[in-house]
Design a protein around this nucleic acid. Structure first.
Lengths: 262, 262
DNA sequence: TGTCGATGTCCAATATATTGTACATATGAC
DNA sequence: GTCATATGTACAATATATTGGACATCGACA
C-alpha cells in the first residue's frame, strides 16, 4: 500500500508515460496478470487513467491479454525490445559461461547482479552443485544496502549522491535493524579500495556473500559477480573463492560490453 | 523517409506514449545508438518532442546513453521487462532444446518465429551443421507475405481481417513482383487445412522453407517452427523434414506456455 | 570573414490527455 | 428482495503535454 512512491508534491497530474512504466514495473514485480481495476487499486492511480493507458499499451503490444477475465500482463513487444538490448550489450553469452565456470569451480551459487533503478537485482544465476542449494529469485528488486554487491554498485557515487540515490527506508534491514547510512558508506568506500566485498548475509542467517565488480568500457561498475555460500564454507574457502571471482571478473572485463556482432 | 506510418489523419498531434514506443522500435530496428536529433529526423517527428520524450525515457531507464556524443539506445529496464515476459511465458527453455534437436536431426537451420505487430520476426534460431550455413538476422521485422511462416501466423484471421492487418505494400515481394492478396489468402487457407506450409523462398533464390504452427493454451497459433534448407535438400527430404517439424511442434505444444515456475 | 548544417535548449500557445464523477452491470451476502 | 463490492464504460473540465519556432553554439568550408 502507498505505492505512489515517486509522487513529487501533492495533487498533481501524473504524466502518462511515467504512469505507463509504473504499470509495467508493477506487473513485473507482481509476476502475474492483473485486471486493470486491480492495477489501479494497487498502485493508487485513478481507474480511468489506468484503463486508458492499459488500452494504449495493449494496442502497442506492450501489454497482452492473458489469464482470462480481462487480465493483462507484459507483452511480446517488450520481449523483443529486451532482446535487442541484450544483443547490443552482449554480456549474456560470456556471462553464462563465466557463471557456469564459477559454479563448477566452487560448487556454490554464482550470480551476476546489476542495478535496476535504485534497487539491486539478480540478472543471471547459476546454482551450485551442493546438495543444499541456495537460490534467489532472479529479476526481483532488493534494497541495495541488504546486499554485498550493493557496496560495489554505488561506489562511483559521492557520499551525498548515495544518500540521495537510495531510498531512506532501504536502510531498514529485513531483521528490523537500522543500518546507519554512514556505516554503509564506509563499507562502500572499503569495497571500492579493496575491489571486493564479503559479509555474512543480512537477509538470512546462514549464508556468506562474496561480490566483485564487473566494469564496462568506460571503467564504470556495470554489475557484479557474486557467490552465495553456506557460512562455514565461505569462511573456509575465502581466499580461493575470492581468487575465482576476481579471475572470472577479469575474464568478463576482457570482453567488455561490445557492439553488435557483425 | 515517410516513416510516420500510423498517422491517422493529417496535422494531428501524436500521443506521447505512441511516439515513445515508435522511438524504441526505431532504435531496435536500427540496432545502434542514435542522437535524439537523428531520431527526430529519421522518424519524421518534431525535434522538441523527441528531446522531451528521450529525456523522459532516460530518466526511467528505458533508454540509456551509450556510444558517446549524447547518443542513446535501449536501456536496461527494457531488458528486465523482457526477461519478465520470457519468464512468464516460459517458452524459451523448451524452445532452445527443440531447435537444437531439430538442427541435429536435419542438419538444417531451424527457427522459431512469431508475429511482431504486423510483421514476421525470427525469435530464436539454431544454425544447421551444413558446411554451407543459411542464417537470418534474429529480431528483424519482415513482411508477412514473404515468409512461409506468415501463411500460418495469420490463419486465425478472416480474409478481411488479413487484408486490414497486413500493410498493402508488404505484398510487393523483394524481387519487385506483386503477390496478389487473394493468392496469399488462398495459401493461408491451404496452410491452415494442411497444418504446415512449404515453398521455395521468395526472399532468395536458393532456399526452401518449411513451417509448422506452434499453438498456445487456447489453441491459437502463437508461433511457428521452421526449417530453412537448400532447395534440393529440402525437396529430397521433404517428408522426413516435415515429420521432424511436426514432432517438434507436438513436443512444444505438450508443454504449452505455462505459468511461472513456483 | 560569412554561411551553412547539425546539434541542443528554451518558451509560449493550444490541442488534448488525465482525471473525477456518474452510470451500467454482475455477483454474492444476507 | 436490498445492499455492497468489483468491474468496466462514458464524458466533460482543466491542467498540461506537444509542438513550432526562436535562439545559441560549434565545426566545416569557401
Amino acid at each position: 500500500m502507498m505505492d505512489a512512491v515517486q509522487d513529487e508534491a501533492a495533487g498533481k497530474r501524473a504524466r502518462g508515460l511515467d504512469r505507463a512504466f509504473e504499470i509495467l514495473d508493477f506487473l513485473r514485480h507482481k509476476r502475474q496478470a492483473l485486471k486493470p481495476n486491480e492495477i489501479a487499486a494497487q498502485i493508487g492511480a485513478p481507474r480511468s487513467s489506468v484503463y486508458e493507458l492499459v488500452n494504449l499499451l495493449l494496442r502497442n503490444g506492450i501489454l497482452e491479454f492473458t489469464g482470462g477475465e480481462g487480465r493483462v500482463y507484459l507483452g511480446r513487444k517488450l520481449y523483443f525490445l529486451g532482446a535487442a538490448y541484450e544483443n547490443h550489450f552482449d554480456f549474456t553469452r560470456e556471462c553464462e559461461a563465466t557463471l557456469e565456470r564459477l559454479a563448477d569451480e566452487t560448487r556454490e551459487t554464482a550470480q551476476f547482479c546489476m542495478l535496476d533503478g535504485n534497487k539491486y537485482t539478480v540478472v543471471r544465476m547459476r546454482e551450485g552443485a551442493r546438495p543444499f542449494r541456495i537460490s534467489t529469485d532472479i529479476g526481483q528488486s532488493v534494497p541495495i544496502p541488504w546486499t554485498a554487491s550493493g557496496r560495489l554498485l554505488v561506489a562511483h557515487l559521492s557520499d551525498q549522491e548515495i544518500l540521495n540515490f537510495i531510498p531512506p527506508e532501504d536502510f531498514r534491514l529485513p531483521s528490523g535493524e537500522w543500518l546507519e547510512p554512514q556505516t554503509f558508506i564506509a563499507e562502500v568506500r572499503q569495497a571500492e579500495r579493496e575491489g571486493f566485498f564479503t559479509f555474512n548475509s543480512i537477509v538470512d542467517s546462514f549464508t556468506h556473500c562474496f561480490a566483485v565488480p564487473v566494469r564496462d568500457d568506460e571503467g564504470h561498475v556495470a554489475g557484479t559477480l557474486c557467490l552465495v555460500t553456506p557460512r562455514d564454507d565461505g569462511l573456509a574457502n575465502r581466499e580461493r573463492y575470492l581468487a575465482c571471482l576476481k579471475q572470472a571478473a577479469a575474464d568478463l572485463n576482457q570482453t567488455p560490453t561490445r557492439q553488435k556482432r557483425a
